[in-house]
Write a protein that binds this DNA or RNA. Structure first.
Lengths: 295, 295
DNA sequence: ACCTTTATGCTCATGTTGAGCATAATATAG
DNA sequence: CTATATTATGCTCAACATGAGCATAAAGGT
């Protein structure tokens, strides 16, 4: 069985991060590596274009997973080589889903997300109390505190996978919960796809801090508020407006188009475009965004 | 053909980063994923222990490579899932090689390394001039400037892979040079192993900036200068001594043992140990080292 | 003429970083 | 025994980055 190539294709539409899915949101585009593929990445591109009609822009490898061996099962294992891809949505394309539909607790810009985390923390504290030994209970509590930012640690938006794995272990998601048990809100997916999506979210959130990949998700021209909302949507965290602008300005990665955004409320905002030329010519010192990651 | 698991096992010995090799330094430990392996990582551990007798400590996945398809060759491709592993050398173990034996230009702490880069840059400028079009020449020059830190950009120690790939394209390494042509100093390896090693070096250099992985390479107790020399050896860059100490101190990741280093010249140095307990208990805000990455 | 809304400029306290001066505590050469 | 070399360690300073917030500008709507 050849390894499978699997893509997490991300776009942001109306300030919501979206992921391209198949089969009613249960699967991600994927297909086996074939002899004719010139490289892993070309194989991936072919599969995604074939299955979704969507061409890929920025692509990077994420992680390679193998499923657990089955006793008495086949000798061959399913190996998945996963990729993160960034694009823009096109009107009318089907299969796009909001990524917070799968991970509602990851959206800390919305009050519902924050309330959900409160609920989750209570459930996880119960779970921690059910550990067999006292040391085990303490270890579980510490893990909950770290991944969910308790005890003044603060929410770390990059711990998407760690949080998902914790919820899996605590049997709070349908993938691991016993049949009929209460589970958290949020769509699940087939096989390991939700884990792959979590990996992609974590990588993208980490990456926008130090590489200007956010512009892969922006249209040709945009206002500064639009850019900020996009970053906030990806990070799932609000930001300080003036500081955001100061930072973006000093990066010198965008320039004014000279136009002004149409149909806005309030004072009209200037439009900007990404200076794609500078990408090669300069080292990008740090596109570190004012996404305060607390101590 | 199942995917192959391949390990880059790193240790630092006498302030030199070492890599564990087989076959006279031509190969890295590796073996196919088998049905009995519980996971990719267990498979890797089994292979490395079997081939080298060395147990693995900290392990992380690096990247998955596929070799290019051969026209009329077999349908199946070789897929390599590579890992970075960190340990301590043990006296008398065979197969350890200095990683700068393979990449002499990556050691910018030594005058020879800096001189070699000067020579490489001249060769690459010739190569840039041989591009067919004027635009192609300019693109090549810009790439050389970026990867080797010309025009005041400064040396970026994380660009190990980019530099190796550039040298490959310019046919300055034995892997790509025509037979008999002059090539750069530095050992080469079989297959794609040198590329895998470059990937590992880049990852480790990046990682020591924001995670305390350097302590995986240290003995139980060490002086601050020993720690600094280890970081410098990995990064291939010198550091400011007082600032290094200030940073390490404020991280609060190490504590004094109360003892003093034996057989040193100069004023005796206090010994420290890594506080392994804090690893789980605290978020490591930033183990960012004073490795000035220039603008 | 006001109010709401968004855009934009500016200040200020605090923290971080790069550089270097100064002094302390050893061993060894003479 | 003193000078010198060598490493350890404490401390200062300027430049810059960061987080927070005040103030004002420019639109549309009541």
């Amino acid at each position: 069985m050849p390894p499978e190539l699997i893509a997490v294709l991300i776009a942001v539409s109306d300030d919501r991060p979206m992921v391209l899915t198949l089969e009613g949101g249960r699967l991600l585009p994927s297909g086996p590596l074939e002899a004719g593929h010139r490289s892993l990445q070309t194989g991936l591109r072919l599969w995604v274009e074939h299955q979704t009609g969507h061409a890929l822009g920025h692509v990077e490898q994420l992680y390679t997973f193998a499923d657990a061996p089955v006793d008495g099962g086949p000798d061959e294992r399913r190996v998945m080589i996963s990729y993160l891809a960034l694009t823009r949505t096109r009107r009318g394309e089907r299969g796009w889903r909001g990524w917070y539909d799968y991970f509602p607790w990851e959206d800390q810009t919305a009050p519902e997300g924050r309330a959900l985390v409160q609920r989750i923390v209570r459930l996880l504290e119960d779970w921690a109390g059910r550990a067999p030994s006292a040391a085990g209970q303490e270890a579980r509590r510490q893990r909950v505190a770290l991944t969910f930012g308790l005890d003044g640690l603060g929410w770390d938006d990059e711990l998407v996978l760690q949080r998902y794995e914790l919820l899996w272990e605590a049997a709070l998601v349908p993938e691991s919960a016993p049949p009929g048990a209460a589970v958290l809100p949020g769509l699940s997916m087939a096989r390991d796809e939700r884990r792959v999506l979590a990996t992609a979210m974590a990588r993208l959130r980490a990456k926008i801090r130090y590489r200007p990949v956010i512009y892969e998700l922006m249209p040709d021209s945009f206002t500064l508020l639009h850019l900020q909302r996009t970053v906030e949507a990806v990070a799932g965290q609000p930001m300080h407006k003036q500081n955001f602008r100061r930072l973006v300005a000093q990066q010198d990665l965008i320039e004014e188009t000279g136009e002004v955004a149409p149909d806005t409320r309030g004072r009209p905002a200037r439009l900007f475009r990404f200076r794609r030329e500078v990408m090669g010519a300069r080292r990008i010192a740090g596109s570190k965004l004012p996404l305060a990651r607390p101590v």
